[in-house]
Amino acid sequence: MAATFEQSLARLEEITAKLERGDAPLEESVKLYEEGSALAVECEKILADARQHVALLATNADGVVEETPFAVESQ
């Protein structure tokens, strides 16, 4: 599975802090900057594209608990 939002955000914060300290060698800084930019784009996309999934646990005819769609009234 791809990195979670939490991991991506944490990494982005780490990279930003590191670049702000300005102590990484140039080549590494270039890489970090590229990674950070990509992470920012990724995080923005995750936040913008999120669609909530709502499930209702229900017991089926065989007595097995399964997830069923939960009808949410639209606003």
């Binding site: 955000l9 800084s29 970090l32 920012a40 936040l47």
Partner: peptide, 16 residues
């Protein structure tokens, strides 16, 4: 979303 935007901004202003 604002936080990510501000991080992006900070990346751009980092000394490097």
């Amino acid at each position: 979303t604002m936080r990510v935007a501000s991080l992006r901004e900070r990346l751009l202003r980092a000394p490097f």
